[in-house]
Nucleic acid binder design. Structure first.
Lengths: 199, 199
DNA sequence: GTCTATAATGAGATAGAC
DNA sequence: GTCTATCTCATTATAGAC
């Protein structure tokens, strides 16, 4: 192995850890499994990280940052209602989960993992603060584009939307039932659209 | 240790395992931790169970059965609307989570654990079928008591309600924010009540 | 800086005495 | 049937050669 800056090595190990968690779950994400996935030696790991715990904490932080980038805000077509925009938004979320189901499973597992570790509760909270912030931005843009206003603080609507997508995610991961998911998404779009008033 | 029928021993180990998972998470639920919690020897474990995996599978089945018993259906007061009944129902669910947060955390962790194990996907699906069945019963009774009918099959409403409670559960476990939970429950009650029509 | 080799610990499972 | 003692293997972490 050539010499690699420590920062890059840390990043490579975090990405490898994320792949292991996605493919085989948190319990399988041992140090050895991670270095094997990264094609590194065990010692290289401990040169970059003091411990397995340190990497897991970094992994959760990293995963939140990645989520930030992956959110797309499609420009709504002219004449679209806020209900249409919401429906399209959750659909695009489901599509992304369809494309990589293991990834969303990994995100949820990492949240639960964080909730079990001493310093992790704070990390999980930060993770959700990011989700709420992203949803708030999207909801504000959606309202703006469709000429409506939310009847309560947008952050509150965001929490509702995130709770709905969490429920949708878990239901789909368990049942893999696209028809049931569509029914849930219809409900979610209707219900959240019900929180909007004409501007 | 006195001689205990194998069935009782299995049960005691399963209950011990559930306590360990609730208190310290699935990753901490090693065979040794479980027998320590149960006050048994390691050998007794393997007399009752062929393997650690077998116990975990049994644990998930057991946990579903327990959930069945824990659901209470309060008689709605005269004059209550279906919205009131729904609001009271999710409130009583949150209250039970308040009383034992670790328990709900454990349920979700076990679902994710099941989703990672080969035969477990089926167990997770059964777990959710139970949830849906319980919710369906409660929703049918609630509609009956308040003189309304659901505008779609009750099983579909049940899936919506379960998705909402899953989202609520995760949000509360992460944030421990009762005010936010109340806002979510208000939304859930309003939105689901919107699926009912006068009988 | 990177590797191989090797502690040191904890895991699941089993043997064999009683 | 139940226990103690042990086996075997996987794990985290480190030592020491290069």
């Amino acid at each position: 192995m050539p010499r690699i800056p420590t920062a890059e090595r840390r990043d490579a190990l975090i990405q490898a850890a994320l792949r292991v968690v996605a493919q085989r779950g948190v319990t399988a994400a041992t140090t050895r499994a991670i270095v094997a996935e990264a094609g590194m030696s065990l010692a290289s790991f401990h040169y970059a990280f003091a411990s397995h715990d340190e990497l897991m904490a970094e992994l959760i932080r990293e995963v939140v940052k990645q989520e930030e980038r992956s959110v797309t805000l499609p420009e709504p077509p002219a004449g679209a209602t806020v209900r249409d925009v919401l429906r399209a938004g959750v659909q695009s979320y489901l599509d992304s989960m369809h494309a990589d189901p293991q990834r969303e499973k990994a995100m949820l597992e990492l949240t639960h993992y964080a909730l079990r570790t001493p310093a992790g509760e704070h990390l999980a909270r930060m993770q959700y603060e990011h989700y709420y912030a992203l949803a708030s931005t999207a909801l504000a843009a959606g309202a703006e584009a469709t000429n409506v206003v939310w009847d309560r603080p947008v952050g509150e609507v965001a929490r509702i939307l995130i709770a709905l997508t969490d429920g949708l995610t878990l239901a789909w991961l368990v049942n893999r039932d696209d028809a049931a998911a569509a029914s849930l998404m219809d409900f979610a779009a209707d219900a959240v659209a019900g929180l909007a008033r004409p501007a």
